[in-house]
């Protein structure tokens, strides 16, 4: 299940957010070797202090985190704008209410097989990208600025995404990091839904039970969840 958590819900999702910070440390600090700020066993930086929105991917009972990403408006301070402005004087610095930034996108590859048996890591990343797109579309966002590893570009494009690479940085860690502009509209998302459906993966939007139900997306993959539902 995908849940969008904003600052007014941080307390309610305290435990999942804790899992998120620890997962980010494991992925970005331990595995990718990025120069990121560590607070104890958690990776938290100054952008997290600005009350960003997080998209959390959890199991059906919403107590185990599978993946997460951070969503911020480009009108405010954002990581990629700051990094690319510092690294490249000619780099981009987008600023518009309908252009948002998605960063720290990661999947817990150790947890993935228990929750979605048979789903590959690459499919999981494409599913997260689709969930980000769905969430953006539902909130009036037209464009996403996001970072990814060079080899993911072709994989995202094969999954129906439309992106232009507008920057590349070697300052993150061991491997270069690309910065891309992703188009968000019905046409692109339609292509992504179809491409993922061919791999047996689907996202279904629903609302939490009233009152004040939040919009969420249920993830299904025919490998594991069918058996789970039976």
């Amino acid at each position: 299940m995908f849940i969008l958590v904003q600052a007014d819900d941080y307390t309610a999702y305290h435990a999942l957010l804790g899992q998120m910070y620890r997962l980010r440390k494991k992925v970005f600090h331990d595995d990718l070797g990025w120069d990121v700020g560590i607070r104890g066993d958690a990776e938290i930086d100054s952008y997290d202090d600005l009350k960003p929105a997080y998209l959390l991917w959890t199991n059906d009972s919403a107590d185990v985190l599978i993946g997460s990403l951070r969503l911020m408006p480009t009108m405010g301070p954002t990581l990629l704008n700051d990094v690319f402005r510092a690294t490249y004087p000619d780099g981009m610095d987008l600023c518009h209410p309908r252009i948002w930034e998605g960063t720290r996108m990661c999947v817990d590859m150790d947890r993935l097989p228990e929750i979605h048996p048979g789903m590959s890591g690459q499919t999981a990343m494409c599913l997260m990208l689709l969930a980000l797109g769905e969430c953006a579309l539902a909130n009036g966002i037209e464009t996403l600025v996001s970072n990814y590893e060079p080899h993911m570009r072709r994989i995202y494009q094969k999954s129906g995404a439309e992106l232009d690479e507008i920057g590349r940085s070697d300052t993150f860690g061991k491997r270069p990091v690309c910065c891309g502009l992703f188009r968000v509209d019905e046409e692109v998302l339609g292509r992504m839904r179809k491409a993922l459906a061919l791999q047996g993966v689907a996202l279904t939007p629903f609302r939490d039970p009233a009152p004040h139900g939040r919009r969420r997306w249920m993830a299904r993959n025919s490998g594991g969840v069918m058996a789970h539902a039976a």
Partner: peptide, 9 residues
Amino acid sequence: HTVRSYLKS
């Protein structure tokens, strides 16, 4: 789309 994003910004 990217050009439109630059122009919007």
